[in-house]
Design a protein around this nucleic acid. Structure first.
Length: 327
DNA sequence: AATCCTCTCAACCGCTCAGAT
DNA sequence: AATCTGAGCGGTTGAGAGGAT
């Protein structure tokens, strides 16, 4: 297959288009339609390669192109489709009339991707990031044989459909992060290990409240007195009391393979990120009590996740819409 | 006011794919 | 079946704008 020669090698113009060039291209396409891009430039009187003409038309000059800021709905669509299809920009563009794949790609890279990263979510997998130095080192230090993907088999962490809609929840949704086992079942049914996890979830469903757990504590052999925090999180450590440890232990009970303090720390930090303000199901089927969530200093929790305490402190209190609240 | 830095996005590059020959 | 060509896709680049110092 012969490669298309570069424009400059053929003595053709590169770089930004002038208004005059735009006009020539528009006039030609209005008269003759688009297609036959290779021969079009010559016929249109342009010293451009066909590829450049096609790009200019499809990404900029096309009359049905929508300009302006992406709406919240558009963002949500992008994130949802991306969680399923990945960087299939043209496929995403098909769901957003008037938006080009190039525009969506740029918007993803400059806005959405960064936002997900700051939320501690891997923009590629749409699962919580595992490359965070603090988290990964903590985990590795306590579980040397742990898989590289700390949450790899975890049902809720492995299901993009569970994470992506919550990126832009409505105000009423923001404090309720229920991750449903049935979704997990659909995606993980062939994984024996995941099956075991599912059974563990089902046995513990419905996850009720800390009070329910405490009422049945004698059924569990969780040593909550040994809970301690890594040195990197002293301020967080100082704010955890015994009740909260019980709470954390309950969560760990559902997923014994993750019952280490570092995973609990991750939960705590995330609970603060999402501004949990009541006893709620959060992530992983865990129950986090109000005192637990509210006791974590914002700086500690958010910087633990994404290393930008000031930014997130500001942004967590931003009220300019749902998305912005998570910037 | 000047310089530096960051961000945005239009445009380019390299590649793949499907259809034609 | 092999090759060629046009079209499209996704990754990357770099100029320009605007903000920070």
């Amino acid at each position: 297959m012969g490669k298309t020669p570069c424009c400059d090698k053929r003595g053709l113009k590169k770089g930004p288009w002038t208004a005059e060039e735009d006009k020539k291209l528009i006039d030609y396409i209005q008269k003759h339609g688009h297609g036959r891009w290779r021969t079009m430039p010559k016929n249109a009187g342009l010293r451009r390669c066909g590829k450049s003409c096609r790009l200019r038309w499809t990404n900029y000059l096309r009359p049905d192109i929508k300009r302006g800021r992406f709406s919240g709905e558009e963002e949500e669509i992008i994130i949802q489709i991306h969680s399923i299809m990945g960087n299939k920009w043209s496929a995403i563009a098909q769901r957003l009339p008037g938006r080009t794949d190039n525009e969506i790609k740029n918007y993803w890279n400059t806005h959405i991707r960064r936002r997900l990263l700051r939320m501690g979510i891997d923009p590629v997998t749409h699962t919580p990031r595992l490359d965070l130095p603090a988290i990964s080192s903590l985990y590795n230090s306590s579980q040397p044989n742990a898989p590289s993907n700390m949450l790899g088999d975890h049902p809720q962490m492995n299901n993009p459909n569970l994470l992506t809609p919550s990126i832009a929840p409505s105000s009423s949704q923001r404090t309720t992060m229920n991750f449903l086992p049935q979704n997990f079942q659909e995606n993980q049914s062939t994984n024996p290990h995941a099956q075991n996890q599912l059974h563990a979830i089902q046995e513990n469903q419905p996850h009720t409240t800390i009070q329910d757990f405490q009422a049945n504590m004698d059924q569990f052999s969780i040593n909550t007195t040994n809970f301690s925090c890594p040195n990197s999180m002293p301020s967080l450590c100082n704010n955890i009391n015994e009740d909260q440890c019980i709470d954390i232990a309950y969560d760990s009970l559902s997923f014994p393979e993750y019952s280490n303090q570092n995973f609990c720390q991750l939960l705590l930090a995330e609970s603060q990120m999402y501004e949990l303000d009541d006893t709620q199901n959060f992530g992983f089927g865990s129950v986090i009590s109000a005192p637990l969530a509210s006791s974590i200093p914002l700086n500690s929790a958010t910087s633990y996740i994404n290393g930008s305490a000031e930014d997130d402190q500001r942004d967590n209190y931003c009220s300019n819409g749902d998305i912005d609240a998570f910037m």
